[in-house]
Design a protein around this nucleic acid. Structure first.
Length: 439
RNA sequence: GAGGCCGUGGUGUAAUGGCAACACUGCGGGUUGUGGACCCGCCUUUAGCAGUUCGAGUCUGCUCGGCCUCCCCA
């Protein structure tokens, strides 16, 4: 065991995984852009209250699981456990509620929860997130769901199912709570400790309980949907109709409620169905819903919102489990070698035009014998070796050797780029200019 | 946070309480000298700290870490 290791529940992404995650994020970001969602980034650290006030007292993520941050003994800050409240803070702080609505925002950041680590559950994990502010219409919910289902399909994830439910708006909430509290109170002595606590703090979450007897009790509870007002019902009907029109498979789950108290009306989750992940609970690869009271809760005006967040770590594992090719770290295309132990500067100089031409070029810095250098180049995954400092490669010549075909050719130094190009493709180079006009 | 299982070089494995072994990888050296070969050597060792014992990788306790269940959720 090494002396130092990554903190509990946090992990390092090595080149192959780091590359795969970057590609995954790029696919999601591009899709978000296609849906008109603009990227933002926000600090890893926020005022503790941003989460504590919005998530609800029954939420562990924004309660006992929060990572408190202190500076010189002063507290009040926390590592963000979820995205929505943080993005809402950004929205309000920068006066985006006075920009043309709706405001559609996308981000992909790391989240932190001080939970006990398990498979696919880390203390530091990555989430992609879409938030749409200022759109009360069911169409916004539908689009968010469509985005997510489409994303998973685009990536090749098929072992997944969509659950949808409505929990009503804030006007219905007192009626819902009253009815459910009255029902569950009759069984209070039979409920387990956690649910007795929820009876006081967050009745709806009793539906989340996994204790068998509690589930039986919950099965007899009044359906939330039957307690809602006309507008809630109409909204939900529109959502369902919309998803159907788009050909998205779904199921209504009467007991689906989410872990944060700010949700209103629409809630949904995309659940993994592969047996490898089908444990006692269900693992959600994405989930979200509407939060029409959140902006006001945070001190802003009454502005509705709807959004979705998904775990990148979960997504990555699910795709891998399903055999989707996630690629690996791009190895160097070209390795520069030399038989001359004293030509370090020449090797460096030789690599530059190749790099400018778009090849990934690594250099063997050593003075090892040439065969060792070749062996090393192969083990580093290079496809082509460019060799100088030998008998053949003299007077402005270099050898370009295809390491796969084991064929080589002596060429003028000036023609090296062209010759290498016959064996490996140039890689596209990112630029600063926004493609397709202003971004 | 609660309960359970587990932890041997970089990786994968072995070792009735009695000399920690093997394979692969990596590094150094050699043979060869434009490659995946062969030979020699090295990688400071049983996650850490205590304890029981003549003697601990093996037994006990604590700590750290991983996995599973509860909890919670991505």
């Amino acid at each position: 065991m090494p002396q130092y290791q990554a903190p509990r529940g946090m992990r390092d992404l090595l080149p192959a995984e780091a590359t795969a995650f970057a590609r995954l994020e790029a696919v999601i970001a591009a899709r978000a852009a296609r849906y008109g969602y603009l990227p933002i980034e926000s600090p890893t650290v926020e005022d503790r209250e941003v989460f504590a006030r919005t998530a609800g007292e029954a939420s562990d993520a924004a309660g006992k699981e929060m990572y408190d941050v202190s500076l010189h003994g002063e507290g009040g800050l926390a590592l963000r456990p979820e995205a929505t409240a943080a993005v809402t803070r950004v929205y309000l702080q920068h006066g985006m509620h006075r920009a043309p609505q709706p405001v559609r925002l996308y981000c992909a950041e790391r989240m932190y929860r001080g939970q006990r680590p398990q498979l696919l559950r880390y203390r530091e994990f990555r989430q992609w997130d879409l938030e749409c502010f200022g759109a009360p219409e069911a169409a916004a919910d539908i689009e968010i769901i469509a985005f997510t289902s489409g994303l998973l399909a685009e990536l090749g994830l098929v072992d997944v199912r969509l659950k949808v439910n409505t929990i009503g708006d804030e006007a219905s909430r007192p009626r819902v709570k009253e009815a459910l509290t009255a029902y569950f109170a009759k069984y209070e002595s039979e409920l387990d400790a956690a649910c007795r606590e929820r009876l006081r703090t967050s009745v709806l979450r009793i539906f989340d309980c996994k204790v068998e007897h509690d589930r039986e009790i919950a099965a007899g509870a009044p359906k939330v949907r039957d307690l809602l007002g006309e507008e809630d019902t109409a909204h939900f009907a529109s959502v369902l109709e919309g998803i159907e029109r788009l050909g998205i498979a779904y199921e209504v789950d009467d007991t689906l409620v989410r872990g944060f108290d700010y949700y209103t009306r629409t809630v949904f989750e995309h659940i993994l169905t592969d047996p490898a992940f089908a444990r006692a609970g269900e693992i959600a690869v994405a989930g979200g819903g509407r939060y029409d009271g959140l902006v006001r809760t945070m001190g802003g005006p009454q502005i509705p919102g709807t959004g979705v967040a998904g775990g990148l770590d979960v997504l990555y594992e699910a795709l891998k489990q399903q055999g989707v090719d996630l690629g690996g770290a791009p190895a160097a295309d070209v390795y520069v070698l030399s038989g001359d132990p004293a030509d370090a500067a020449d090797r460096l100089q030789l690599a530059e035009p190749l790099r400018d031409a778009g090849f990934n070029v690594a250099i063997d810095y050593s003075t090892r014998p040439l065969d060792r250098q070749l062996e090393s180049a192969v083990k580093h995954g290079a496809r082509v070796a460019v060799i100088r400092g030998t008998e053949e490669a003299r007077g402005g010549n270099v050898i370009v050797r295809d390491l796969t075909k084991k064929e080589q050719r002596v060429t003028r130094l000036a023609a090296a780029v062209t010759e290498v190009g016959r064996h490996v493709a140039r890689r596209p180079r990112p630029t600063l200019a926004a493609p397709g006009g202003e971004g």
